[in-house]
Write a protein that binds this DNA or RNA. Structure first.
Lengths: 199, 199
DNA sequence: ACTCATACTGTAATTATATACAGTATACCA
DNA sequence: TGGTATACTGTATATAATTACAGTATGAGT
């Protein structure tokens, strides 16, 4: 999405919004009217730019023949996280799937759960948890944290400038006590939902 | 969906499939070509019939101006089930939400879980379980069963002509042993997934 | 200085599309 | 037995839509 100009992005968003609420893409004329262009060719030029940059496909001779290119479609599933790489780095994306059907917060990605440390609150091995990375971290939240490049899901019990306590929801695990000044520590997000496939 | 003729249903399905895989609705000509009509007016007539029956909306003067009417969109969430009513009766539908993002089987509806009888396998109070109603019931499956108009979710332990054993996944609950000949008993479906919102 | 990308105006032509009108034939309902 | 719905063919036309060509103007990169 990054190598689009501001104007091109506006056009692209307009096309997406038309598709989602009307059910079909706009014509050149409709784009021009919306943006106040006096010539349909202005829209044509923009479409060509979007095509060139790989964001849409244009079917020639077809009315409203604009298809969105399915790059980056869907919410990414993050499996194993490579050391040092940002959560959403492409190398960590297992695949992409549709949005969470009922999450009341935005979902930035799904994280595949490894292990049984959270089974007492119903988070099992191989479940997908829905993560929002911008929500305010607060005591009692289920948080996704990174400690020295290791990513973990735990309940946040305490949270101050020099002491963080993370608790597993499984009596077999001990609390993790961290001083963020001594180790590399980051909150990666908050768990806002869960998805499980039962086959 | 019921008061459509066979032909009309075919047309309607064709329109839906075009929208979902091309991203825009078909023209009269494209419909005619697909069905082998020799006149675009055959398609026009069908569209008018579909409009009259409320399945689509047509925007006049607009190319590909066909919108699906949003009746029955989404997978229903079933909350409390009224005694005697079929699972999917409209009175039982709490709301409708998008499909399960990763379920490998079809999902006919979601059932809102009440109680803690399945917590040992991570199914908690208020979770939504995804139910497929046509899957083969087999030992070990998590099944949705109706016993004398009461709907319950349990693991199927035994299953023969005159004995069914349903087991809760929580040691505080006893097995439910049923003779299908003596009580009103039905399998309503199999649990194929789970969704949870964490707020 | 030159090219290229961006962001448009203005005009115009071909073709894609919607859609009315006139029929034909079958089936069902009252 | 006449009306209405279904399911088409066949023709025709106004208009919706794509899309090429010719410009103008600005800013970035080389």
């Amino acid at each position: 999405m990054s190598n689009l100009t501001v104007r091109q992005k506006e056009i692209f968003e307009f096309i997406k919004s038309k598709i989602s609420d009307k059910g079909y893409p706009p014509t050149r004329m409709e784009i021009s009217n919306y943006f106040g262009f006096k010539s349909p060719n202005a829209a044509e030029d923009h479409l060509k730019a979007l095509k060139k940059k790989g964001f849409i496909e244009i079917l020639s001779g077809t009315s409203r023949g604009i298809s969105l290119s399915n790059v980056d479609e869907g919410i990414p599933i993050i499996g194993l996280v490579s050391a040092g790489s940002p959560m959403l780095a492409e190398e960590n994306v297992e695949k992409r799937i549709p949005p969470h059907p009922i999450s009341s917060h935005g979902v930035d990605y799904y994280l595949r759960v490894k292990g049984d440390s959270m089974i007492d609150i119903g988070i099992f091995d191989n479940d997908l948890i829905a993560v929002n990375k911008d929500l305010n971290i607060k005591k009692g939240s289920i948080v996704i944290a990174r400690i020295d490049d290791e990513v973990t899901v735990k309940t946040l019990k305490e949270f101050s400038a020099n002491k963080v306590i993370l608790r597993a929801e499984n009596p077999n695990y001990k609390d993790i006590v961290v001083n963020p000044n001594n180790v590399h520590f980051d909150f990666e997000g908050t768990c806002v939902g869960l998805i499980r496939n039962i086959s």
